[in-house]
C-alpha cells in the first residue's frame, strides 16, 4: 500500500535516470546505475523534496563480481512523511562512485565508513580517510572475503594445544 505521491516520485525517478524497481515487504526500491547517482541525488533533493539522507550503506555480494557491491540509500521527506529507497550496483573491480557530500552534508562520514569497511572509493570526496579502523589497518573488514578473526577460546584441557597454534605475540 504505497502512497500515490511516492509512486509518482518513483515513476519520475525511474524515467529520468533509466532505473528499475524492485518490491519487497511492501516497499519499493529504485535501482539506479552508478554513473547517474549524483545527478539523481540532486533531483531527489531539489525537485522531489527529500531533504534528509537517513541511511547510506553497502552490501557485498562476493564472489559475484559484476556488480559486487550494492550501495543502499534512504531519503526522507519530512513534510510529506515519505521515505525513498535507492540502490546502486557497483562493480567489484576498482569500486568507485561519485560522492553525495555536496548534496547531503552528512554523507561525508557515511561514505568514509563505507570506504573504510568496504573499500569503495568516493570520487570527489573532501576527506576520504579511514573512519573507524586505525589508519594503518590492512584490508576492509566488512567485505565477505575478509575473515571474521575468530579466536579459539582456551580452556584448561586444551590450553597448551591452542597456544601452539596461536600467532606469536599474543597472550603468553
Amino acid at each position: 500500500m504505497m502512497s500515490e505521491k511516492l509512486s509518482q516520485h518513483i515513476t519520475s525517478l525511474v524515467e529520468k535516470f533509466e532505473g528499475t524497481t524492485a518490491e519487497f515487504a511492501g516497499e519499493t526500491t529504485v535501482i539506479i546505475p552508478a554513473e547517474r547517482i549524483e545527478s539523481a541525488a540532486r533531483f531527489i533533493h531539489d525537485y522531489l523534496g527529500f531533504k534528509f539522507l537517513s541511511c547510506l550503506t553497502a552490501v557485498d555480494y562476493y564472489p559475484q563480481d559484476e556488480p559486487r557491491f550494492h550501495l543502499f540509500y534512504r531519503f526522507n521527506s519530512i513534510p510529506e512523511a515519505l521515505s525513498l529507497n535507492v540502490r546502486v550496483p557497483v562493480s567489484g573491480i576498482n569500486p568507485s562512485i561519485s560522492t553525495l557530500e555536496k548534496v547531503y552534508s552528512n554523507a561525508n562520514w557515511h561514505e568514509r565508513e563505507v570506504y573504510d569497511l568496504f573499500g569503495i572509493k568516493f570520487e570527489g570526496h573532501s576527506d576520504l580517510r579511514r573512519l573507524v579502523m586505525p589508519a594503518d589497518w590492512q584490508g576492509h573488514p566488512l567485505r565477505k572475503d575478509y575473515p571474521l578473526g575468530y579466536e579459539e577460546p582456551q580452556y584448561t584441557f586444551n590450553y597448551e594445544e591452542i597456544s601452539v597454534r596461536k600467532p606469536k605475540g599474543s597472550r603468553e
Binding site: 569497511l117 579511514r130 573512519l131 573507524v132 579502523m133 573488514p141 566488512l142 575478509y146 571474521l148 578473526g149
Partner: peptide, 10 residues
C-alpha cells in the same frame, strides 16, 4: 572515532 569499534555488524 573508532576507538570503540567492535565489529558488531560483521
Amino acid at each position: 572515532v573508532g576507538f570503540l569499534h567492535t565489529g558488531i555488524e560483521k
